[in-house]
Design a protein around this nucleic acid. Structure first.
Lengths: 194, 194
DNA sequence: TGTACATCAGTGAACGCGCGTTCACTGATGTAC
DNA sequence: TGTACATCAGTGAACGCGCGTTCACTGATGTAC
């Protein structure tokens, strides 16, 4: 082999990481394989030594983005009580920083409306990633039964994703700020009471 | 002129209507001008007698879809009290029917994550359409001041759009049903109390 | 340890296809007289 | 009212471009002996 197996894995990781940023920042059709590889100082042909298709790349990048986003929302507040942890998550999710950086943020907000039109493999990967995401966060939500907490998870996260999505769609600075602020207050009030 | 001015306007209207369905159902790049015109029993060249570009078509179709969606959500409940009218809107928005028919539904849910990546003209049209939409619905929301009602409008509508979007992204039938149901109860509880 | 061969990550030209847009043309109807 | 000409919605071939994917090739390193 020309390169070590380790080198190959590292290249694959770099492609996946860059792709997961680009999919979120530019959408599923907003960049080409050639673009992507060029920015990694590689040529497009080599891509297919690592992934079967752009579709497969999207599926993996989506899952990886969900994981990354989960990590960013939860790190550093492990010691706190559930309600306080959740509050941190809400504040981070609806922050100006998250608003300004779709490429490093939640894929739900960045890609939700494109997913229903994706092929089966992508959608399956999304389902799986969402399930894992929910399983890890659900325990922070209010509710006596798991079922109840899951319902709250759905309402809160789909709501916040919609808010962030709309805030990015709106051009007017002031409207954007009001939207994020209003939602933040509302969700903290609704889900962090105890 | 070969065709009357009336005929021309009618053709334009047909293109716009079909486009507004297709953009919502297939996304901003999910169909071609040739596809669109073919289904209207026309050929692609003629398109440019009515619109300057696909971009302009998207801008107009977006605005028109917002209007259509507003009409669908509000018709038939004009006589009721605000809270009851709002309840009807929430129930329609989060219904299985709306879920199943993105092409005829709210463009926020169908297209939100694509809009930030659109050119200025499209985004300006969206801003304007959203403003009109809000001005027409805001009065149904709870709140003493206009400002307060607008805040509630933002929270409710971005939340519902996110919910519908996520419900369409999820493949699993049961999850989808639970998601819509949970959000419906939650929003009625939160916004229709009086 | 040294040598011959095999492997395969990466290269870059090429293929095939679809798309937005342009353009010369058609011909029925509107307009000017 | 009738006639000659102008207009322009609609046609369909063509242009230019970008993209996903394929493929013959390279050459450094791994492996077999």
């Amino acid at each position: 082999m020309r390169y070590s197996q380790e080198h190959k894995l590292e290249t694959r990781r770099r492609i996946l990481y860059e792709a997961s940023r680009r999919f979120r920042g530019q959408g599923s059709e907003g960049f080409s394989i050639a673009d992507l590889m060029h920015d990694l100082k590689l040529t497009h042909g080599g891509f297919y030594r690592h992934f079967n298709s752009k579709e497969q790349l999207f599926a993996e990048a989506l899952a990886s983005a969900m994981q990354e986003s989960h990590a960013k929302l939860t790190t550093g507040s492990d010691a706190k009580a559930p309600a306080a942890q959740l509050r941190v998550i809400i504040e981070r999710y609806l922050s100006p920083r998250h608003w300004a950086n779709p490429a490093e943020g939640c894929p739900l907000a960045a890609l939700a409306s494109e997913i229903p039109r994706q092929p089966r493999a992508v959608r399956a990967a999304f389902d799986q990633a969402l399930k894992t995401y929910m399983d890890e966060i659900e325990r922070l939500l209010p509710g006596k039964t798991r079922r109840e907490r899951q319902r709250n998870f759905f309402v809160l996260f789909s709501g916040m994703a919609g808010t962030l999505s709309l805030a990015r769609a709106v051009s007017e600075e002031q409207t954007r700020a009001r939207l994020l602020h209003a939602a933040k207050e509302f969700y903290i009030q609704a889900f962090c009471q105890d």
